[in-house]
Write a protein that binds this DNA or RNA. Structure first.
Length: 640
RNA sequence: GCCGGCGUAGCUCAGCAGGCAGAGCAGCGGUUUCGUAAACCGCAGGCCGGAGGUUCGAUUCCUCCCGCCGGCUCCA
């Protein structure tokens, strides 16, 4: 007899019947059964022994099942409305689900409403969803009759002889399940988007139409998700950038994927770079500058022309010599290292550079600041002895958390990428190097108490690495930091140091970027803060607003006083507008501090302080306001 | 590259059964001297993304091109 745990927590002993039968007797509903840690259909007969737990519809574990069922309902609805349609695949994904179709006619977004309405009918009908097992021959016959070429292809990849299908009403679909017991449970579903997608992601195969949707157990969760989407849309850096006059990308005149940093964006970048440089000097790095182009010989020696050519732009001819625009900074840093014989006493050497690189990206993948063709890496190369690698990796993690923490990122997801143990021959460098490097990464992560996911076979051919993802204010994950060993370049460039034995040795080299690229990081920052930058980053920290023309000289004096104190301040006196207009404008520009000067304030030598939050703090001495802004700036927090 | 959507004033958008191209904001000129999210009046602003076709006539219909946006395995 199996131990059955019902939704309200009561336990019964049973076998043979389905969990669904028990629930129906009690007038209960649920999404699925959890048997030995695996989700199963409620309609399955209970096992002879073990534990069966009821998974409620509201259980997070049920979400995937719910969405998978929603994708079947979508397919059923599409089938009804578009008889000639061919079905491909329809899985649940992180935020919802999709289904890929080939439509006989192009489908527009406006069709989604009608499909949603048809889905509602299927939900209303509360069709039972039942699993059906077919033999291979039956399955193939079924799909040949229906002329479902994609499904036939999927069938061919399934090794089993008994093939699992799910049936709801007139609709049947190849599927491993599990599914909800009936369509009536999918109450809160919404179709969101329409997009093209290749069959099996392969650009040489058919282009299908993908319909995206999402589903939740209750209306509130669906509403929240839709609000979240809307919030993300409003924070889109591609809209905020031009609105706040931070940057522009001018495809027609400048070129795709090439960023113009406007004065306000440049002001923020300057703050970021200054902070970054100061912290790097403190952490024992040496800053360097290197050129944007280098001779073909350099890139041949580094191997870039062999392994990275598709990411590089065509060479330019300079006095008969080929030069390439740099896609990476490493060869230059190595060239600096090699200008003299290095002693073991010189190590570690840490070269850091805000190095601007150019990489070819296909036009379709370019995306605002997040994917560009020219960008500035916050790059560094650490060259060290074998006995130093662990401390060096740990030092990278410390610096990463210190710097990212200042920008309000405190949640990290870490991926450790190591060799594929089955194919060690695909990687450069010996076992001993790989193990030492991997151990140093693991130990450094453990010493920092950072949980990580180990990814076998995800390492690049030249060394193991750590990638760190941060979560932004909307809980979206972004990969920023990468810390990777490179066993390849020291070899290719024959880098050495003289050890205490008087012999030449090969150093370890670690390549790392903390913010990744300044462009990408800026885009993420804009979305993280929704354009409302904290005081230390705000391009304009304070505006001084005169109430009438009479206070213009006073306002200008106050702004000048602030600027002399190192505060980024402007007096808005260029044209005569009402205070209401000025406040609204400052609010839209998301300026943290508004200093209102009317006749009363001017007479007393004070300002009325209003914060971006809408808080009116009333009259304050100018010195007190400056102190407040200076404190908020120094704290690098979001508090104004 | 491919699929779908979209290209109209600096920006946001309306218009189009085929008949001289419209609004708000921004800009410029003036009036208003104003107290915490938009004072008022006026002026100017356009190869309706580009090329070709159909037509007496095209921003509108058709074809091609260019650009932008969403997406292109999280596998039945």
């Amino acid at each position: 007899m199996a131990k059955v745990i019902l939704p309200e927590g009561s336990v019964v002993e049973a076998s043979g019947r389905s969990l669904l039968a028990f629930l129906e007797e009690r007038g209960l509903t649920a999404a699925a059964a959890l048997v030995d840690g695996q989700l199963r259909d409620l309609r399955d007969p209970l096992p002879e022994s073990g534990e069966v737990r009821t998974v409620a519809l509201a259980d997070p574990a049920a979400l995937e099942v719910l969405r998978h069922t929603a994708s079947h309902i979508l397919a059923q609805a599409v089938r009804r409305l578009y008889p000639g349609v061919k079905l491909a695949i329809g899985p649940a994904i992180a935020d919802g689900f999709y289904y890929d179709f080939r439509f006989p006619e192009p489908l527009g977004r406006e069709a989604l409403a009608a499909i949603e309405a048809e889905m509602a009918k299927i939900v209303e009908a509360d069709l039972p969803i039942e699993r059906v097992w077919l033999s291979r021959a039956e399955a193939e016959a079924l799909y040949r009759d229906l002329d479902e070429c994609y499904k036939l292809e999927l069938l061919a990849d399934i090794p089993d002889e008994r093939i699992s299908f799910y049936r709801q009403g007139e609709f049947i679909d190849l599927c491993r399940g599990p599914h909800l017991p009936s369509t009536g449970l999918v109450r809160h579903v919404r179709l969101l988007d329409l997009a093209g997608a290749y069959w099996r992601g392969d650009a040489s195969r058919d282009m299908l139409t993908r319909i995206y949707g999402t589903a939740f157990a209750d209306a509130k969760a669906l509403e929240e998700h839709l609000r979240w989407r809307e919030e993300a849309r409003q924070r889109d850096h591609r809209a905020l950038g031009p609105d706040l006059d931070l940057f522009s990308i001018q495809n027609e005149t400048i070129g795709a994927g090439l960023v113009l940093w406007h004065p306000k964006g440049a002001r923020i970048r300057h703050v970021i770079e200054t902070f970054w440089k100061d912290e790097h000097y403190k952490a024992g790095y040496q800053l360097v500058y290197t050129p944007h182009i280098g001779r073909a010989r350099l890139w041949r020696e580094s191997g870039h022309l062999d392994f990275y050519r598709e990411g590089m732009y065509a060479p330019m001819d300079i006095e008969g010599q080929e030069f390439y625009l740099k896609p990476m900074n490493c060869p230059f840093h190595i060239a600096i290292y090699k200008t003299r014989t290095r002693s073991y006493r010189d190590l570690p050497i840490r070269y850091a550079e805000m190095g601007t690189v150019y990489r070819f990206e296909r036009s379709g993948v370019l995306h605002g600041l997040l994917r560009v063709r020219g960008f500035t890496q916050d790059d560094a190369h650490i060259i060290c002895r074998p006995d130093q690698i662990e401390d060096e990796v740990e030092g990278c993690l410390d610096l990463t958390m210190h710097i990212l923490g200042a920008f309000g990122f405190h949640d990290y997801k870490v991926a450790l990428s190591v060799r594929d143990p089955a194919h060690k021959e695909r990687y450069i460098g010996g076992d001993a190097m790989w193990e030492a490097a991997e151990n140093s990464l693991v130990r450094a992560l453990e010493r920092k108490g950072l949980p990580y996911t180990r990814m076998e076979g995800e390492a690049v051919f030249y060394g193991p690495k750590i990638d760190m993802h941060i979560l932004d204010s909307l809980h979206r994950s972004w990969q920023l930091t990468t810390i990777q060993f490179d066993f390849n370049l020291p070899e290719r460039f024959d880098m050495t140091y003289i050890g205490d034995d008087g012999q030449a040795h090969r150093p370890y080299m670690v390549h790392r970027a903390l913010l990744g690229s300044l462009e990408r990081f800026f885009g993420i920052l804009i979305e993280h803060y929704g354009g409302a930058f904290p005081a230390w980053l705000a391009p304009v920290q304070a505006v001084v607003l005169p109430v009438t023309e009479g206070e213009i000289p006073y306002a200008e004096g106050v702004a000048e006083e602030l600027r002399q104190a190192g505060i980024r301040a402007e007096a808005w006196t260029r044209e005569r507008k009402t205070l209401r207009w000025l406040i609204r404008e400052a609010q839209l520009q998301k300026i943290p501090y508004m200093l209102v000067c009317g006749a009363r304030e001017a007479a007393q030598g004070v300002v009325a302080l209003r914060l971006r939050t809408g808080e009116d703090l009333g009259p304050q001495p100018v010195a007190a306001v400056m102190e407040r802004i200076r404190n908020a700036t120094a704290a690098r927090g979001t508090e104004l």
